[in-house]
């Protein structure tokens, strides 16, 4: 972004990569795929790079409002300095925080999640499912991230990205507003779970196995980690793939 600003240019959209998208090896692949989609359709975009910082989401959910607001206000200063108007995020947590919680602190942007971007591009005819890997006949299920689904009532956009695949789409028993959490939200990602009978992602595997899905579509880097670990735990890595909506789109279009 700094380079773009130095050249006197403004991007159409800022891609908010997020901490997982920046540092988590698995999520880095999704980040690259989101970039591929943006480049493919010719949207000019920028990333903040080293000027990006945690949105404060995990701090806020864990009760550290001070840290959250420090992060939020610093980020708002950076975003406003670059005159950012529109943001796409690769993570529902970043999405929810910037979209819903930043306005109260003075940060007003049009924020979309990458699944919404993909939906828009499909609707506009700019993205199809051609020229790449065929998902025809594959059993695909979609796992609703809490902060996209219940948190912001976005259930259709990610499904739209799957509908164009000509695949066999199946819903899990607990889906949409009844979707079961992967277990990572509320800062659980950064701590050990409390003691109980089992871990939440293992519980979620019941639904995945029951749906007999070959592909579990995710739309959140934390869900990605939890679901991948769950599949590993069941020793089903050969049979079940966990892929982000962006990865599926990139594969289907051969980008």
């Amino acid at each position: 972004m700094a380079e773009m600003a130095a050249a006197g240019k403004e991007p159409e959209i800022l891609f908010w990569v997020g901490c997982a998208g920046s540092f988590d090896e698995r999520a880095q692949k999704i980040t690259r795929d989101i970039c591929k989609i943006l480049q493919h359709v010719g949207i000019s975009f920028a990333v903040l790079g080293t000027e990006e910082s945690c949105t404060g989401d995990p701090a806020k959910r864990a009760g550290n409002e001070f840290l959250f607001q420090m992060q939020a206000m610093t980020n708002i200063q950076v975003l406003d300095a670059y005159n950012i108007k529109k943001i796409v995020t690769g993570c529902p947590h970043c999405f929810n925080t910037i979209k819903n919680e930043y306005p109260g602190l003075g940060g007003n942007y049009e924020v979309i999640h990458h699944s919404q971007l993909i939906q828009q591009l499909i609707d506009e005819g700019k993205l199809k499912a051609e020229g790449g890997e065929s998902f025809k006949g594959k059993r695909i299920t979609y796992h609703d991230p809490c902060y996209l689904g219940r948190g912001n009532n976005i259930y259709e956009a990610p499904r739209k990205a799957l509908e164009v695949l000509d695949a066999e789409l199946v819903e899990m028993k607990r889906c949409k507003s009844n979707g079961l959490c992967c277990g990572a939200g509320g800062a659980q990602m950064f701590k050990e779970p409390e003691k109980g009978k089992k871990d939440i992602n293992i519980e979620r595997m019941n639904d995945v196995l029951e749906a007999k899905a070959q592909v579990v579509a995710a739309a959140c880097p934390f869900c990605m980690t939890m679901l991948s670990d769950g599949v590993k735990n069941e020793n089903k890595e050969q049979e079940i793939q966990v892929l982000d909506i962006a990865e599926i789109t990139v594969r289907a279009n051969g980008l």
Binding site: V17, C19, G21, S22, F23, Q28, T31, R32, V47, G49, T50, E52, S53, C54, G56, P58, A59, A62, N64, L67, M70, Q71, A187, M189, F190, K191
Partner: peptide, 25 residues
Amino acid sequence: LNNMFGNVENNGAPWKYSNADRLNW
């Protein structure tokens, strides 16, 4: 969680990664 808070505060991410590595992806 205190570790996570410390990471966010010091390097702007919930994990212990250097902010300079943000573009390594």
